[in-house]
């Protein structure tokens, strides 16, 4: 796809963000504060996700495997 229309679309999205959050109306230092805050939050969310999501996914995976009958041998023996 051509880069230009993508660039225009991204610019449009950015403008929409500015208009909706009122940051279009802010003074430069307020904008800086607002964006710093937003980016910090975003980075923290992403970092948290990076740390915890793999662990959670593997735990969930184990759990579902367990439900679907791939039990460990010792559990099976207990039932017997």
């Amino acid at each position: 796809m051509d880069i230009k229309s993508l660039k225009n679309y991204l610019y449009w999205l950015y403008c929409q963000f500015e208009l909706i959050t009122c940051s279009y109306l802010m003074e430069p230092w307020e904008k800086l504060l607002f964006y710093t805050f937003n980016i910090t939050m975003l980075v923290m969310v992403l970092y948290t996700a990076y740390i915890f999501v793999p662990v959670h996914i593997s735990t969930a995976f184990q759990f579902f495997l367990h439900l679907l009958g791939n039990q460990h041998e010792n559990t099976v023996s207990v039932v017997k």
Partner: peptide
């Protein structure tokens, strides 16, 4: 919802 979001951000900065 987005309108209130905008007013919310504006109000927070207003208090600041």
């Amino acid at each position: 919802v987005l309108t209130f979001l905008g007013f919310g951000v504006g109000t927070i900065f207003g208090y600041l």
